[in-house]
Design a binder for these strands. Structure first.
Lengths: 342, 342
DNA sequence: CAGAAATATGGAAACGTTACCACATAGGAG
DNA sequence: CTCCTATGTGGTAACGTTTCCATATTTCTG
């Protein structure tokens, strides 16, 4: 049985293809009798419209591109779930690209997506440093496809975006450590080439300023958001002669690396060294390791990004709307690891 | 600047659309002079072929569908990475569907994918119990699109597939526990409606038989592959009056749940109760929790599945090839948690 | 009850590409 | 020098929809 086309349905139901089309799209008049016969035919022949034929005349697809740096990071897993939850109700689908935090792969993906005539793009750029990349995104946008950034910004861009108030999150985390009595607090920061990296460092500094405490530049250590760098930097911290009493880590993977280093070195978390991280790590709760963290509504970030895209797609032109940037708020979850014991 | 079509290129280069098409697809004769002019026109007009128009006549796309039960399970994250690694080199792309282990969502996804005219399908079905689902897959296959199953089978089906020798893995794990001196070994098994669930139970039983030990049906507990069931069943085990000295868990999430229960109850793993799980959990290594596990080449599973699909797509008809089922071998990683101490 | 509006349907062009066929032209083989 | 083959090119019919436009038919409205 070959795949049924709209003509087959029309023939089977004794009406014209036009009528079937109107029925499918609820776009014009369709009589009750015709309606019934068409419904029956569709069921019997198992008809599903051919998306290409559907999109050819209209010039657009029903696919949106999703480009993220690493599927295996649970943070992005949640983002994707959030996006999917919105798209599912809209007959929209996603082509997923994992860039492995690699700019070249990202560029390749973008070129590919352009050819796929995607309707819109949701992207967490690997870095906002890359000018070419940003240029490419601008090119895409100039073709009329809306783009929403997630979590990371692109230099000099005016794309719609969903961010988290990283400054606030880092501020609260650091402030909590200060309130708990710490003064020597190290930060395992992210790269300055990424907005979250910069913002979290800013929040950290802000907490010191607000509490009128001096900032020790020696305690500011830069990692690359990966586990390994968190591990190495924490080892470094542990071996400092004038060791800080607390550490704030700028993302989940580095936090994990830091924890690994502490476990290895026999440092008791929240006792020998206090710790607050950014982003929850589900598994730590599972294992009843109570590490205080700045948590954020990850799934919601994905969902909101998808919703903004939908708004754009439904015709709200940039002119009338300006750029839309949603900044969600983090929540500090204190579980004890921030306390000052010694 | 409106998007250029093949006709624009043709006009600009002073040739016919046919010639441009042949050039684009390297599918026929194109003279040097024409070639140059076309190349120039393409660059100047920034031409990218419209994928829909391209696919309409040929009836196929360059997109393959990937349907998996849960993106957030690192196992499937790895699978996806494996698939992507192969597809990237072939100008093929994936539409990703996350079914949330929900049959209805799965069905919806399959219908959608059919409309997208996907070229092939890689799927881990939620369950092989669902007859309708299997029927649907058969329908898809009858349309001529190749399908490769990953990790889970479909009842009465003859699709290509990549599995892991779960029997062997479970056998080795259980056998290791027996060799370590355990006799009362419980299994937190998966649902019998899934092949891995069945196979791992079989491997468990096989180990007892090979060692001529009796199987205690009371020690066979069925979960649903989710963390919560592992947690609940382990709690149950801990509270048994004649408590087993060792437990084998059938997948990563249930293993995690079991560990959570043990941590909560103050049971020392590998001492009070020995433990071997199925599938590695990266984070446990990070935290220096040495739990013995059956590990499998997850990324490779995805890659191999994608490769089989490519073979099919490159024209190897089912007739000439029969069905292709690759069964990869697991590897038992002993880290100490299997030992019998008490 | 005439005409206008609302309802219902079919026909045909268009969307951008590919695939096939027809037609040239040139160079070699016999 | 004729025929064949290799090379190069253009014309045109698909592919499965949607979107107008044209044409009925029915139902109001005054």
């Amino acid at each position: 049985m070959a795949k049924a086309t709209i003509k087959d349905i029309a023939k089977h139901a004794g009406v014209s293809p036009s009528t079937v089309s109107r029925f499918m799209n609820s776009s014009g008049y369709v009589g009750d009798e015709a309606r019934e016969k068409i419904e029956k035919a569709i069921k019997e022949l198992n008809y599903i419209p051919n998306a290409f034929a559907q999109n050819l005349p209209t010039g657009g697809s029903n696919v949106i591109g999703v480009v993220i740096p690493d599927i295996n990071n649970p943070f992005f897993g949640e983002i994707i779930k959030g996006i999917a939850s919105v798209l599912d109700n809209e007959n929209l689908h996603m082509i997923l690209c994992d860039t492995d935090e690699n700019t070249e792969k990202e560029l390749k993906s973008l070129a590919m997506l352009k050819g796929q005539m995607i309707k819109g793009l949701l992207i967490t750029p690997t870095s906002d440093k890359n000018e070419f990349n940003s240029e490419y995104l601008t090119l895409l946008e100039s073709m009329g496809i809306p783009i929403v950034l997630i979590d990371r910004d692109v230099k000099y861009s005016n794309f719609d975006a969903v961010f988290l108030d990283s400054v606030q999150g880092a501020f609260e985390a650091t402030n909590a450590l200060i309130q708990a009595g710490h003064e020597k607090i190290a930060i395992i920061a992210g790269p300055l080439t990424s907005k979250p990296g910069r913002d979290r460092l800013r929040g950290y500094k802000k907490a010191f300023e607000m509490n009128q405490l001096p900032i020790d530049e020696e305690l500011i250590l830069h990692g690359d958001f990966r586990e390994k760098s968190g591990y190495q930097l924490m080892k470094h911290i542990i071996n400092m002669k004038d060791r800080p009493t607390a550490v704030f880590t700028s993302n989940n993977l580095m936090n994990l690396g830091a924890i690994k280093a502490m476990v290895e070195e026999g440092i008791e978390i929240g006792k020998d060294i206090s710790l607050v991280g950014f982003d929850e790590i589900e598994i730590l709760n599972t294992l009843s390791m109570n590490i205080s963290v700045v948590s954020r509504p990850t799934k919601k970030m994905g969902a909101v990004a998808a919703e903004i895209l939908l708004e754009r797609l439904s015709g709200q032109s940039k002119e009338s709307m300006g750029m839309k940037r949603i900044i969600l708020l983090p929540k500090l979850l204190l579980k004890g690891s921030e306390k000052r014991v010694k």
